[in-house]
């Protein structure tokens, strides 16, 4: 299944590149518009089929993280569709608020899954004190969010404050998830566990960069190239989920 995902990721990338090189804007827009929600939805459903069938075990953080990734993907598919449907109102404050609000549940689910797993691993490996870890996970993102929003508004006063304030939590939240996954990859770099987590890290890193660009320079989420990049990220996340399944049957 991983190869099928890889193949589809390459096909979408090649098609997108051809459309972009030949300046086929309608084709590029159609590809982006259809591939982003579809890929997120398919990957989400595949993940749910794999991880949603078994009993819900609160203490099984690895399983839970993958389940939350799957649920988050389904919610991101919805947010992709909503962003496309509201495209006529692009630039308006209502549009920005709605799009970022719809993305928030998916992000929260991913954060719960990844940070929960980070805490569980930390409780076993005793890298740092749990209270300090929880404190860092609350204080650092909040401070970073405020600093990012202030910096962007100071450096670019023309930007809409609402846009910056609604996108900065998304950027920082996604960044924190990426950092946590990166750390876990480093810890388990010697084993097969690094593969699914590493793939998830790459996917989240791509999404982080996209949201950071939206927050800092105002790159629209319904930009066709951006949608194609997100499609790649969703497919990579799907690969991470099937790879995690392989760990479960090891």
């Amino acid at each position: 299944m991983t190869f099928a995902f890889l193949f589809s990721a390459i096909v979408i990338l090649v098609l997108g590149s051809i459309a972009w090189i030949y300046d086929e804007q309608p084709a590029l827009a159609a590809l982006g518009l259809s591939s982003a929600p579809l890929s997120a939805l398919i990957m989400g459903f595949i993940g749910l089929v794999i991880f949603g069938r078994e009993d819900f075990r609160r203490e099984d953080r690895f399983h839970l993280m993958n389940l939350f990734f799957s649920l988050g993907l389904v919610l991101y598919a919805i947010s992709e569709v909503a962003a496309s449907l509201l495209a006529s109102q692009e630039g308006s404050e209502a549009y920005l608020f709605t799009v970022s609000l719809i993305q928030m549940p998916g992000l929260i689910l991913w954060a719960m899954g990844v940070l929960g797993y980070l805490r569980a691993s930390n409780s076993v490996l005793e890298t740092t004190d749990d209270r300090r870890l929880v404190g860092t996970m609350i204080v650092v993102p909040t401070a970073a969010m405020l600093i990012l929003a202030t910096l962007v508004l100071l450096l670019n006063p023309a930007r809409s404050p609402l846009e910056v304030l609604t996108t900065s939590p998304l950027a920082i939240g996604m960044g924190v998830i990426a950092l946590a996954l990166g750390y876990v990859v480093i810890v388990f770099r010697g084993g097969r566990l690094a593969r699914p987590i590493g793939l998830a890290f790459i996917a989240i890193l791509i999404l982080t960069m996209q949201i950071v660009l939206w927050c800092c320079v105002g790159l629209s989420p319904i930009e066709p190239l951006g949608q194609l990049v997100r499609t790649e990220a969703y497919i990579i996340l799907g690969m991470a989920l099937t790879s995690a399944k392989a760990i479960e049957v090891a």
């Binding site: 203490e59 953080r61 399983h63 076993v124 760990i247």
Partner: peptide
């Protein structure tokens, strides 16, 4: 228990 916290219950059991 420690292994299951990191890898999950299923892999810990299967191993």
């Amino acid at each position: 228990n420690r292994c299951a916290k990191i890898l999950g219950i299923k892999p810990a059991r299967s191993m």
